[in-house]
Each structure stands twice: as C-alpha cells, then as structure tokens.
C-alpha cells in the first residue's frame, strides 16, 4: 500500500472512530426498534468470536440467552472485549463509553431471552447483607473484599471496585467460575442487602487507623516486622552503644 493511501486509510478510520465516540448514542430503554449503533459495534468488535447473530463460535460462547445483565457486567468491568480468546478475562478499564455500552447491551439483549440489567435500589439492609455476604461470598472474596487465588486457573477478584449494579449482575449471571445465586438462595431483598453491604465495605467499615492492603494477617505481619520490630531495633541502637 502506498504511503499516501495508508495515511488516508488511517484518517478515515480515525474519523469514523471519532464519529462514533462523539455521536450521542441513544439507548433509550424500551425502544422496540433496531439497534444500529449497538449492532455496528457488535459486528466490528464481538462478532468474530461470538458469531454474527450471537450464535457463538469455537472462539467464543453463544450470547443468544445470556441477557443484558451479562453483557453489561462483562463490558462495564472491562472483562470484554479481549483481543485474543485465550487472553485472561480480568477486570480492566472499560473499552467503551457509557453510551456505547448501553447500545451493545441493548443489542445483546435483543438476541434472545435472558435477565435484564437489574435495577438496584440503595435501601438494602446492611446488617442482614453482612451476614449473607459472610455466608455466601466471603469464602472466595474475603470478609474485607480483597479476593484470593483459587484452584485450576481461577482467581476470585476483589469486590472493592464493583458498582452496586455489577455486584447484583454477578449474583444473577455467575461470571467465570462464580456460581449463580438463584432467587431461592438470594431473593430480591437479600440481593439488595448484599449489594448494600458491599457498598458499605467500599465506603469504609474501617475503624482504628489505616487498613493497609486489607489482606489481614499478611499486612499485619509486614507491619509488625517492618514497623514494629524494625523500629525497636533502631531504638535499641540509638539508646545503647552501636559497636
């Protein structure tokens, strides 16, 4: 390709991207029409793995019945899109703006049936949520919410950066190796309670000073030696003869 043509190509692509970025994508809920913006983004970024109609390929799972909740969870936490199907699926900065995510979510929702994005009111019972969190969530994500490594290539992520909507979606969808929490296990009230507790955990249940990395015993060990014992040794050297 001659140099000038390449440059022109780039300019066109950039202009196209800029157009998509600036164009206010209207993703009004309940709009029964087609979803041109969402469909365009889907074709461009998702279809190569998940198939043109969300039917799935050997590179990606079918999206026909995952629903809006799942699409919103994966896109808003930056877990999707990934460049290579073998890439690690982990939390990143979202690749799209809010409007584009809205359009994509709506499009994926229109591919089949599946749970909608839950509407999480912020009136959950924090105390009840705490008990439920400790029974159902703390075994993987930890009572302080930091998350740990699990078996067979799985890592439980921290919940300290999740929005209330994402927490509720994860409970419905069961992303990755996380099990699904069906209404019989966590009903509406209980889901709102868990969401409220995670929110409280994020906005600070810490008392009594700096919480360090919130990893519990590991931080405490590092501080006990790195601050406590070490300072004591310095004190001893200050007070007594050094050599």
């Amino acid at each position: 390709m001659p140099r000038g043509l390449r440059l022109a190509f780039c300019v066109v692509v950039a202009a196209g991207l800029a157009w998509f970025h600036e164009r206010p994508v209207s993703a009004q809920p309940g709009d029964p029409g087609r979803h041109p913006a969402g469909e365009h983004l889907y074709r461009r970024d998702c279809a190569s793995c998940h198939g043109p109609a969300g039917e799935g390929t050997y590179r990606g799972v079918p999206l026909t019945d995952v629903g809006e909740a799942s699409a919103h969870f994966y896109l808003s936490t930056g877990r999707m899109p990934i460049d290579d199907p073998y890439d690690e699926i982990r939390r990143r900065d979202p690749a799209y703006g809010e409007a584009e995510i809205g359009a994509l979510v709506e499009f994926v929702g229109s591919l089949g049936s599946g749970p909608p994005v839950p509407d999480v009111a912020d009136d959950g019972d924090v105390a009840a949520g705490g008990s439920l969190y400790r029974l159902h969530c703390a075994q993987c994500h930890g009572s302080t919410g930091v998350g740990v490594a699990l078996a067979a290539g799985v890592t439980a992520p921290s919940v300290l950066h999740s929005t209330p909507t994402q927490v509720a979606e994860a409970l419905i969808v069961g992303p990755g190796a996380m099990p699904v929490f069906t209404p019989a296990v966590l009903g509406d009230d209980e889901t709102r309670a868990v969401v409220a507790y995670v929110d409280a955990l994020q906005s600070g249940l810490d008392r009594g000073g700096h919480a360090m990395a919130r990893s519990g015993r590991m931080d405490e060990t590092l501080a006990a030696w790195g601050v406590g014992v070490l300072v004591m040794l310095v004190l001893a050297r200050t007070i007594a003869r050094r050599r």
Binding site: R134, G142, V148, S215, G216, R217, M218, W225
Partner: peptide, 8 residues
C-alpha cells in the same frame, strides 16, 4: 473468610 491464617 479468605485469606485466612494465624498471626505471623
């Protein structure tokens, strides 16, 4: 809860 362990 995790990570679980004793004092150092």
């Amino acid at each position: 809860t995790v990570p679980a362990g004793p004092d150092w």
